[in-house]
Structures are given as C-alpha cells and as structure tokens.
C-alpha cells in the first residue's frame, strides 16, 4: 500500500509513541513487539561521545533478535526484585525521515526521558539524545523498528539503567 507523506509521517509517529508507551509502561513484550520479526532486528544504546570518537561500545548492545528477547528476560526475570524501581516518561519528536527502498525507511527523532525513583519521588532527567532508526514496512504497510540506536547526549548517566531508553 502506498502512503502519502502525511500518512507515512503519522504512521512513523505512531511507531515512536508505541515504543514510548511500552517503555513507560514497563511492558517489555510490548517493547519487543515494536521490532521487526527478523534476525537482524537490533537495539543499541550508547553515548554520542563514544560514537563521535569511533567507539562502538554501548550501554546496551542488542545486535540481533535473540539479544532483544534476552533483554526482556533480563528485566522481567533475572533482575526482578533486585533494584530500586523508577518510573520513566519518554518524550519523542520526529525530526526527519527518508525512504531508503520499498520496504525500508530511515527516521531520526529527539528524545528526553524523565525518571522518578519510587523511593525518593524526585523527578529528574535520565537522558536526552536522539533515536537513529531504520524502519521496516511490511506488505500491509505496517511499520516496525528494524534497528534503533538511542544515541545519548548524556554521556554520564545519573543512574544505572534497568530499562532500555
């Protein structure tokens, strides 16, 4: 199905919001569901500082579907009950998108994430940065993330990370 740019933009925004909603709801299966069901599906979280210096190391480096699935297991099973939990609110803003080919798009967006630890109740900024996404469009026009790189302007985190950004 061909889409006009306006409906494509609306669909990309819907994908961005679906991911923000899943993360803020701590719905890890929902988060996984925003990614394409392909072996190459990937999520990276790293500082822009590393990227700018050609350093590929990240805070999270899930470069295949199996690692995305393991990320769900980390949060829901392995770490359960061992950390001070915190709420997050993701604010995302689409800044540009381009079609690469019939089934692939590239999209950039800004993000800021607030966190509120449950014990202190004080809200602060967890991270700000941009998402560099590759988006897969299937035959029905549905959009999923093929890969996402959350590139953090925040090179020094104010806290450990439990959930993806």
């Amino acid at each position: 199905m061909m889409q006009t740019d306006t409906s494509l933009e609306a669909a990309l925004n819907a994908l961005l919001l679906a991911d923000a909603h899943a993360l803020d709801s701590k719905d890890m299966p929902g988060w996984l569901g925003n990614y394409a069901d392909e072996e190459a599906a990937a999520y990276y979280c790293r500082s822009a500082e590393n990227s700018e210096h050609g350093l590929a190391l990240g805070f999270m480096y899930d470069d295949c579907r199996a690692r995305l699935e393991d990320r769900v297991t980390f949060v829901n099973d392995i770490w359960a009950g061992t950390f001070q939990d915190y709420r997050t609110r993701h604010f995302v803003q689409l800044t540009s998108f381009d079609r690469v080919d019939a089934t692939t798009l590239e999209m950039r967006s800004n993000f800021s994430v607030f966190m509120t630890p449950k014990d202190s109740g004080i809200t602060q900024v967890l991270a700000a940065g941009q998402y560099l996404d590759t988006v897969r469009q299937d035959k029905n026009g549905e959009l999923k993330l093929l890969s996402r790189r959350a590139e953090l302007d925040t090179s020094v985190l104010p806290r450990y990370l439990v959930y993806p950004i």
Binding site: C45, R46, A56, L57, G58, F59, M60, Y61, D62, D63, R67, F74, I78, W79, T82, F83, Q84, L157, R159, Y160, L161, V162
Partner: peptide, 25 residues
C-alpha cells in the same frame, strides 16, 4: 569483546546492574 563488554558489566550489565542499585541503598 565489544558485544560482551557492552552487556555484561557496568551500570546496565547483566551481572552488575544490581550492584549499582545496592550502592544507592
């Protein structure tokens, strides 16, 4: 090493994220 280092230790690592939480507590 890159794939292991990013996800194993540190403030979000599989076997060390809880340490970070204990530091606070």
């Amino acid at each position: 090493r890159l794939r292991q280092s990013s996800n194993l230790l540190g403030p979000c690592g599989l076997i060390s994220m809880e340490d970070a939480s204990v530091f606070h507590r």
